[in-house]
Simulated scan of single mutants.
Amino acid sequence: MDVIITFNKQIIKNKFKHPYTKIEFVEKDLKVSRITAANYLNKLSDDGILTKKKLGVTNYYINHELFDILSK
């Protein structure tokens, strides 16, 4: 069963704050549990909005559209 997520202004602001994010950033910024933050980011990744990359033990979620804009 897919996780049902209600997106609010905070998750949108977080998505455009940096060209990448990670669970800890969302957890702190949105004041949600680690599991909730991971669910948000994994859903965005599953939907193709962010790209999930594992580096060591940490998952990074890359916002390629924002990265492209900032790199121009």
Score class of each variant (00 low, 15 high):
Lys13Arg: 11
Phe25Met: 08
Val57Lys: 15
Leu30Tyr: 05
Glu24Val: 08
Lys15Met: 04
Lys43Tyr: 09
Pro19Gln: 09
Tyr20Ser: 11
Asn39Pro: 02
Lys15Glu: 00
Ile23Val: 12
Ile4Asp: 08
Asp47Gln: 12
Asp68Ser: 06
Ile11Trp: 00
Val26Asp: 00
His18Asp: 09
His18Val: 01
Val3Leu: 04
Lys54Asn: 05
Lys31Trp: 00
Lys54His: 03
Asp2Trp: 07
Tyr61Asp: 06
Lys52Ala: 12
Ile4Gln: 10
Ile11Tyr: 00
Phe16Val: 14
Ala38Gly: 05
Ile49Ala: 07
Phe7Leu: 05
Lys31Asn: 08
Lys22Arg: 14
Leu44His: 12
Lys15His: 02
Ile62Ala: 03
Gln10Leu: 00
Met1Gly: 15
Lys53Trp: 12
Ser45Glu: 04
Thr36Ser: 13
Asn59Tyr: 14
Ile5Lys: 13
Ile11Ala: 03
Val32Cys: 11
Ser45Lys: 02
Lys72Phe: 13
Leu41Lys: 02
Asp2Gln: 05
Phe7His: 04
Ile49Lys: 12
Asn39Tyr: 08
Lys52Gly: 05
His64Ala: 09
Asn8Trp: 00
Ile4Cys: 04
Ala38Val: 09
Ser33Val: 03
Lys31Glu: 06
Val57Ala: 15
Glu27Thr: 07
Gly48Ser: 02
Lys9Gly: 02
Glu27Gln: 12
Asp46Met: 07
Thr36Asn: 14
Thr6Tyr: 15
Leu41Asp: 00
Tyr60Leu: 11
Ile69Ser: 06
Ile35Gln: 12
Asn59Ile: 00
Ile49Asn: 10
Leu55Gly: 01
Ser33Pro: 03
Ser71Leu: 15
Leu66Thr: 11
Phe7Ile: 06
Leu66Cys: 09
Glu24Trp: 06
His64Gln: 13
Asn63Pro: 03
Val57His: 14
Tyr20Glu: 05
Leu70Cys: 10
Leu55Asn: 02
Glu24Ser: 11
Leu70Asn: 10
Asp47Leu: 15
Thr36Lys: 14
Lys72Met: 13
Lys28Tyr: 05
Lys52Phe: 01
Asp68His: 07
Lys43Ser: 12
Lys31Gly: 02
Asp2Pro: 09
Asn63Cys: 10
Asn42Gln: 10
Val32Trp: 10
Lys54Ser: 02
Asp46Thr: 11
Arg34Met: 09
His18Thr: 11
Ser45Asp: 05
Asn8Thr: 12
Glu27Val: 05
Lys13Asp: 11
Phe7Cys: 07
Asn14Lys: 12
Ala37Tyr: 03
Thr21Asn: 07
Lys52Leu: 03
Asn63Met: 09
Ala38Phe: 14
Val26Trp: 00
Val26Met: 07
Ile4Trp: 06
Gly56Val: 09
Lys53Glu: 15
